[in-house]
Simulated assay, not measured.
Amino acid sequence: MADDHRLTPRPPALLGDQERALYDAITGGPRARGPQHFALTAPDGSLRGPFDAFLLAPAVGAALQELGSAIRYRTALTDRAREIAILLVAARWDSAFEREAHEAVAGAAGLDDGVLCALRDEDASALDGEEALVARTVIALLDGDLDDPQWEAAASVLGEAGVFELTALVGYYSTLALQLRVFRV
């Protein structure tokens, strides 16, 4: 698979000032603090996953990096709910990197192998309560919209702000999945 990549990895020594500032924000930010469930960098120091592509256009990459950080670390979604949503996006887009990275995070958040397997199939039946609602809502969002009953169910449990956060998450991780696919990461 590495031979299929469309980007040449760029170690830190090859980065310009704007690229290096973004690199430092990614490798020194909240993704790099605490437990590491997946590696942000390759052995040569280049960024893994979608992050290396962020360096192609540092202004856009910085905005994506900040949005991703907000979604991962500053929403009202629980860790488990967030990872359920991310893994459903990964399943819909068949995004191997998102699945690899976030199954590790989801496992650390307490989601078991049965749930992870169900999420790979976009199956919410292994979940209960609010987590099942989050999964059903994400699947509907991936299908394009929430009908009135879906909206009512989601808004009554998550609140309007929670639905907003969930739509932002689905859009962000869908963007990353598209970029990962286009750049063959």
Rank of each mutant, 00 (worst) to 15 (best):
L7G: 13
A57L: 12
F97D: 05
H37L: 08
Y73P: 00
D148F: 02
A153S: 13
D113Y: 03
H37Q: 09
M1C: 07
A85Q: 04
I86A: 01
P12H: 11
T167Q: 14
A59H: 08
R74G: 03
A132L: 04
G28N: 09
R74E: 15
A126T: 09
L22R: 09
H102W: 08
E83F: 03
Y172G: 00
L56A: 11
T27S: 08
D112A: 10
T78C: 00
P11K: 14
G171W: 10
A101H: 12
G162W: 05
V89K: 11
A25N: 05
C117F: 07
V134I: 15
V134T: 03
G61P: 06
A32K: 12
P43C: 08
L119H: 05
L67Q: 15
P35S: 09
A81K: 05
A62I: 02
L127A: 04
A42I: 02
A154W: 03
I26W: 04
P149T: 14
A59N: 05
A155Q: 11
Q18E: 15
Y173H: 07
G129I: 06
L56M: 09
A90K: 12
A81T: 05
I86L: 02
D79M: 02
A76V: 08
L40T: 09
L119E: 01
E122L: 15
Y23W: 13
L166C: 07
L88I: 08
D3M: 12
A155H: 11
A13E: 13
R184E: 14
A21S: 07
S95K: 06
R33W: 05
R92S: 05
L64C: 03
I139W: 03
R184M: 07
